[in-house]
Amino acid sequence: MPVATLEVSAPLRMLHWLYPVLLLGCAYLIIPIIGTNYLFEAILLPFLALSLAGVGLNILTGYAGQVSLGSAAFLAVGAFAAYNFNLRVEGLPLIGCIVLAGFAAAAIGIVFGLPSLRLKGFYLAVSTLAAQFFVQWALTKFNWFSDNSASGVIDAPLLSVAGVAFNGAVRRYLFSLTVVTLLTLFAYRLVSSQTGRNFIAVRDNEAAARIIGVPVLKTKLVAFAISSFIIGVAGVLWAFTYLRTVEPAGFNLDRSFQILFIIIIGGLASIRGAFFGAALLVVSPLILSRLGSFLLGDLFNSGVLEMSQRIVLGVLIILFLILEPDGLVSLWDRIRKRTIARLKKR
């Protein structure tokens, strides 16, 4: 649940902005210099795309309380829409493709959000699976989406904005970072706006929200639309900056669950949470594979790795739900507070 906003004095309010600014400074200026190719390709690029997807899902599930199990469908819609806009609309700049892809995902999101007007809870969660299966089926079935390529796997176009090419790991990283930063800022503003308050009102008590005049149906559809837009753009980043290929297979049910896990582990109804959760989910398999091959040697083959990753992920989810239901964010805040208190004591 969201952290209480406390009455803070002006200097503290500055501090509130200090951390993100420092972090961004570091991400823009220092990491590109010191980062290795491996850091960008294996960690930061998937991290950024998944974080953004987590931000998108958190708006829908964390803030507006509508559980979705079909996020990967919107990633796929975004990726394929951007690819096709780029392919079929002559002279449309890349940014235009990405924005239009977001709108395409938002439109599909509204369609699959319509059941939320009648269904709640588990019924809605299950109905969002319809999006997952339908979209994946359509993208596989109709080869037109993949430009009639025989394998269904297509190369993402080169990234370029206003004549500047974003090829190479560092440039793709900077591109992704910029998109993620802008949309995250958007999400921050959104959740503290009247629309954001309406989201939480609908989540916490839908009946009361309706009675006091919160436009419940509109609020739900807006949540689906914005969430799908952001997830759609995340899909573009995933395909264009990280994988550099576009294929339906990568956007399966496991991916949907992965994004759900990101916000559970990171913290529901927290924008920061999506980044925390994504970091853990991207990094932990890498650590696990290093650790496994170090401890078990050849016994730790790819099959064993995959299965133990599943187990670890499952255990993590259960542990977080039991021990830290507000996610890594609340754990982080607690540790920070304690550290500050200890420092002050000295």
Binding site: F257, F261, R310, G314, I317, L321, I322
Partner: peptide, 10 residues
């Protein structure tokens, strides 16, 4: 529900 989702992974 989410716990059983984790459980299914395990």
């Amino acid at each position: 529900f989410m716990a059983t989702l984790g459980l299914s992974y395990v």
